[in-house]
Design a protein around this nucleic acid. Structure first.
Lengths: 381, 381
DNA sequence: CTCATTCGTTCAATGCTTGAACTTAGTCTG
DNA sequence: CAGACTAAGTTCAAGCATTGAACGAATGAG
């Protein structure tokens, strides 16, 4: 590493600090200097290339009291954009996201992907991306791709419900089709990321729990997604709550998934689709209410175990669980209260996700905008 | 932050890099330059104050082949020293540790601490520290203090088996008695640290599991102890394995601790002390073997759950479990094999701790030497 | 004894942030 | 309306840790 590199590191670190402050909210150079602890001089210096490069714009002066009026800086409305894409069992989704956190376009296409080959799926996704980016004259930073399965080093290791994707080189495949730099990750991680970036919706230590066919948890520790050494972290679905319980497809017994998975809830409630279950719950259907309550109890046991290991203050219920939140809440919370060690003294929160069905795809796009901010050199490439 | 600070940060970071390389093994300036990626010039510059300050020594030239012989640098044999101390239910322990990782002195004193007040315990510990450091003409970097309980921000929050310590200001108390800068932490964390520092004994992602009265896990992620937001991380003892199982003192049911705690094993085996159990196992006592096997099964379920959440490749069994390792191994491993998701494809290891009963106190001292290396400015204070 | 080799030191150059001085662009007061 | 005041933004010399190249030192090989 040359000295120049050392100094460049300092500069890039400061650039990151400034960009993070801007993601939080726009601000003049003086304001940013105050917020970041850098000097006005450094801020002029750092922002100059960002303005020249079309990353930021200087707004017309704001007249606010005495002194020379400030000219707030914010992300350029025609600045770079990230693409998020989601491949799921029963739908595909795509979204475009600006550095300022604004969603530009969205598509969600219901489609049964279980039988589709990797190539077929990628063709579809690439088509959607083309639709969403067509006519948009903004630089594309890359694409995040969400998969319902375990991803490690960009490779799809395990997708219990989309078996034809296992081992496929999805990042390369989508990259070739779209010309974008593609980064693949687990949908649970990306749904969690959507609650962290660009806005903190649940602090910077939390676990986001979703149910689809399986149950997945996205774990956020210290403001970073925790993936574990091989991408298997947060497999809440296979936390054991009854060691001699129901057999699980994973080979174990008594996994949470067997008691609180969406398929189990629907079966117990005698419904086929989440929507129908929701209506039954609203109508006060006893069978539906009971099924959800029972699932909540099992989920609560698993979450309590998770909290005893990770010690995070917040659990967010997302995806299908967010839809069922009002009816799940009580039973989940009650198990947590009874089982989290010293739960009374610690302040633990259970939240329903405020993001809708676009959480995953938003997180996928956020993966890319976040990377661009954290590695500002990418913005100048 | 002034510019000077920025640059000083770079310098301190490089100093840390160099010291870490030296903890690994001694080396000449040229060797260290090669290992750290810095230049010889920088190494001369960085090591100069360390030599002047008595932190390092230059060994007499080593004749090894052609060229000017190198003068290896290593930690000064009379350099600074850290103290580790452990307060436990049935013993106290103290150790002194050099920056090079060499243990200088050790004491382990059996003593029933259950009834003792905080002041009484601290007086004892301070006495032991005085014994161990008496006549030693080396600067003391501080003391690490291990407690069997939950610690957060230096405060003892929960010590189920040493109730008189709860809320006590242990760090201040021991600091006043010894004149040392004292840092308190959980024994499970410190036992884990002993496997990470100054030598990696189990990689840099692992969980260290101990049993005393309770079961505690020290979680190491990416080479750092993971404590959670309020110090409750790694409470493996209260992971639920049978949701309608045995009632636990924590208020929950079916906690691992109720099936695999040392007290449970001893009771089931009809023994009063670990030593007697060990002899019974060696003699092939069926009751003892059965008790340990059953505990191993329960522990294995808990560990499998832990691995499904943390995704670490290695689990180290320490403390009493290390003593029982040969007889626990099979049942623990078998549950892990059956329950860790994709356990076959991931490479998971179960190890018995190579450190003896001094693991905790060594970790306590290591906390201090590690801090000194990571914050090299402390070495010059 | 001379040359090759490796270790360690010296020194000018580099490029970043800084703080202070300065310029700019407004509001406020009388 | 003019001059004082205030705050934003810019300019510039100073300070600092690393670097790379040149240099001096210490030994082995022939």
């Amino acid at each position: 590493m040359t000295t120049v590199d050392h100094l460049r590191q300092v500069r890039l670190g400061n650039l990151r600090t400034v960009l993070l402050a801007l993601v939080d909210r726009p601000g003049s150079r003086a304001d940013l200097a105050a917020r970041t602890g850098l000097t006005k001089a450094t801020l002029s210096n750092l922002t100059e290339p960002l303005l020249a490069g079309g990353i930021l714009v200087e707004e017309p002066a704001t007249l606010a009291g005495m002194g020379r009026p400030s000219k707030p800086l914010r992300f350029h409305p025609d600045g770079p954009v990230a693409v998020g894409a989601e491949i799921n069992v029963s739908h595909l989704a795509v979204e475009t996201l600006g550095l300022d956190g604004a969603t530009l376009e969205r598509r969600l296409v219901p489609a049964d992907m279980r039988k589709a080959s990797a190539d077929e799926v990628l063709d579809e996704v690439a088509g959607l991306i083309r639709e969403v980016t067509a006519g948009m004259n903004r630089r594309l930073l890359g694409a995040g791709l969400a998969i319902p399965g375990v991803v490690h080093d960009g490779a799809v290791i395990r997708t219990p419900n989309l078996l034809r994707l296992v081992g496929a080189r999805l990042a390369e495949g989508l990259g070739e089709r779209t010309g974008l730099d593609v980064q693949v990750d687990n949908e649970a991680n990306l749904a969690a990321l959507a609650h962290l970036w660009p806005r903190h919706l649940a602090g910077e230590d939390f676990v986001h729990v979703t149910a689809d066919v399986g149950i997945g948890a996205g774990v956020v520790l210290g403001g970073e997604i925790y993936r574990g050494v091989s991408g298997f972290a947060g497999e809440l679905g296979h936390v054991v709550i009854e060691r001699n319980g129901i057999r699980c497809t994973c080979g174990s017994r008594g996994c949470v998934e067997r008691y609180a998975g969406l398929d189990v809830i629907l079966r117990e409630a005698g419904r086929r689709r989440l929507d129908s279950l929701r209506k039954a719950l609203e109508a006060g259907d006893a069978k539906a209410l009971g099924a959800v309550r029972k699932a909540g109890e099992a989920l609560g046991v698993g979450i309590a175990t998770l909290m005893n290991l990770f010690d995070v203050p917040t659990v967010v219920l997302g995806g299908s669980y967010a839809v069922l939140y009002d009816h799940l809440r009580e039973s989940v919370q009650s198990e947590m209260d009874g089982r989290v060690l010293a739960g009374g003294e610690r302040h633990t929160r259970l939240l329903g996700s405020p993001l809708g069905e676009f959480a995953v795809v938003r997180g996928a796009a956020g993966l890319i905008t976040r990377r661009a901010v954290q590695q500002p050199e990418r913005l100048f490439a």
